[in-house]
Design a protein around this nucleic acid. Structure first.
Length: 492
RNA sequence: GACCGCGUAGCUCAGCGGUAGAGCAGGCGCCUUUUAAGCGUAAGGUCGUGGGUUCGAGUCCCACCGCGGUCACCA
């Protein structure tokens, strides 16, 4: 009986009985709250009338007067109800209002005794009734699980911290799109539902098309489709969209995430590095107003050029292991174990090197927190990248890092169809040996390469991680409005 | 997937073998310029779920569910 929802339902009924529609279709509004606050002093006084709307965030009834704070999308202002101005009947309606209700108020501006800017209400109307309580006003909503499952409550309770993150996210994507458009890239849309998945090493989500009676995959990357477009004669293309990878969830991974990939004909990875650093610099300027970003306590300057650090030399510098001295997986594994690194016996040499790279960033040395590119990766973990022009067991690949976060991947793209076929076959062998993430041979893609793809540079940027960096968030879930969650206990 | 931690009122949290608590929110009453308004009053809980140990279990043990962290793989 004391349950708050049933109290509110009773009030809803009481309002209806007085002939009030608690969910009217039409609303009057002359100004936003921000506008009124901005011009408060010049608009002060009984001769000016304003009609505002908003949600009641706070309500203090004191006998024959009441104060409320109302909030619209632009700000928050105090409003003042007095029985003398409203009359007894209308004042009874005030007592049927609750925190969380939306109201429309008309009146004039004044300062209270304590100086707070306030609208003195002469007329008001309920425009939408809330039936459930809002989170507590002082502590807000702190439970991480609730904040993510019910993001609307998080935005309501913690809006001052949460909203700006998503505003920045929107600006980042807009700035990225603008930069690419201005550099002659054409935005395209390629299939999300794919007959064969490719372009990355990852497990896919599988679904089934009934009419075609065939399994389909949600894309794990857009790479192979964009390259087909380069084959088709577009010189510069990009796509910003969602990828899906059926893998674990952690601070930097969500099963669906937003990726930008762009491909540029007649370019190599050096060109793509310049493009990447200029793009991210431009995005930071537009979305954050500065190229100097604070991330997790470190200041990172995005002004180009960023250092190009050869992967293997960097690993040697920070872990003490000179990978070149261990030409096979066994000797490298032994060297790693000797230095206290755990070694998964299933991993090949390239994956072990990748492992060292991760360990190196985990140690978190200050020079690795700057904006930088790691360049030149082992061949066997990069089946879509072209062999290095001077080091035959490496490929021309780089990854941008910001504040220790890996935010992308790029190559001089492999355009030799015969080499590409061998690389796929090699992947298929790894697959046969139980590597569920090894890439799948895509015969149609090989046919496209045989038609001929010009020398091409490609770049992928993890948009969520870039936003994490630019908004100083340590979890990807804090930059995704509705992150993937496990089944809630009350779901079936 | 492995290990560690957490789960108590709508929200934020105490309680850690002996009769389930506080603040805020909500109810009722008082209060015509309040500021986390105030005062009074009555309420609100299968202590995540299921087992076990014990005379007695939010409290100890086990399993499961959910969340977080660390590690392993991917952006």
């Amino acid at each position: 009986m004391a349950d708050e929802r049933s109290v509110r339902l009773q009030r809803l009924q009481a309002l209806r009985e007085r002939g009030i529609n608690p969910y009217p279709n039409h609303v009057e509004r002359s100004h936003t709250i921000a506008e009124v606050l901005q011009h408060f002093d010049e608009w002060l006084g009984e001769e000016h009338s304003f009609c505002l709307v908003g949600r009641i965030r706070l309500l203090r009834e004191m006998g024959k007067v009441a104060f409320a704070h109302i909030e619209d999308g632009t700000g928050r202002i105090q409003v003042y109800f007095r029985i003398n101005d409203l009359g007894e009947e209308a004042y009874r309606i005030v007592r049927l209002l609750d925190i969380g209700d939306f109201i429309q108020v008309r009146g004039f501006l004044f300062h209270t005794r304590t100086g707070e800017r306030t609208l003195h209400v002469l007329e008001f109307a309920l425009i939408a009734k809330g039936l459930r309580p809002l989170p507590e006003k002082y502590h807000g909503l702190e439970d991480v699980e609730l904040r993510q499952r019910k993001r609307y409550l998080d935005l309501l309770a913690n809006g001052d911290e949460v909203k700006p993150i998503f505003v920045t996210r929107s600006r980042v994507i807009r700035a990225m799109r603008r930069f690419l458009d201005e550099h002659g890239f054409l935005e395209v849309e390629t299939p999300i539902l794919q007959p064969i998945y490719g372009g990355a090493t990852a497990r896919p989500f599988v679904t089934h098309h009934h009419a075609l009676n065939r399994d389909m995959y949600l894309r794990i990357a857009v790479e192979l489709y964009l390259k087909r477009l380069i084959v088709g004669g577009f010189e510069r293309v990009y796509e910003i969209g969602r990828n899906f990878r059926n893998e674990g969830i952690d601070r930097t991974h969500n099963p669906e995430f937003t990726m930008m990939e762009c491909y540029q004909a007649y370019a190599d990875y050096e060109d793509m590095m310049r493009l990447a650093e200029e793009m991210i610099y431009a995005i930071a300027l537009e979305a954050c107003g500065t190229p100097r970003i604070r991330y997790q306590g470190y200041e990172v300057d995005l002004t180009p050029p960023w250092p190009r650090l050869p992967l293997l030399a960097t690993i040697e510098e920070f872990t003490g292991i000179d990978v070149n001295r261990y030409p096979d997986r066994e000797s490298l594994a032994a060297a790693m174990q000797a230095r206290g690194y755990e070694v998964d016996p299933a991993l090949g040499r390239g994956r072990l090197i990748d492992e060292l790279k991760s360990a190196m960033f985990r140690q978190g040395a200050e020079p690795l927190r700057r904006a930088l590119f790691l360049v030149d990766y082992p061949l066997d973990v990069s089946p879509l990248a072209k062999r290095h022009r001077s080091q035959p067991d490496l490929v021309e690949r780089f990854q941008p890092f910001l504040g220790g976060l890996e935010i992308g991947n790029a190559f001089t793209e492999l355009n030799d169809p015969l080499d590409q076929r061998q690389r796929f076959e090699d992947q298929m062998r790894q697959r046969a040996h139980g590597d569920v993430e090894a890439q799948v041979l895509d015969e149609d893609f090989l046919e496209a390469l045989e038609v001929g793809m010009p020398p091409t540079g490609g770049l992928g940027i993890g948009v969520d991680r870039l936003v994490m960096f630019l908004t100083d968030q340590e979890s990807i879930r804090d930059v995704i409005l509705f992150p993937t969650m496990r089944k809630a206990p009350n779901e079936l």
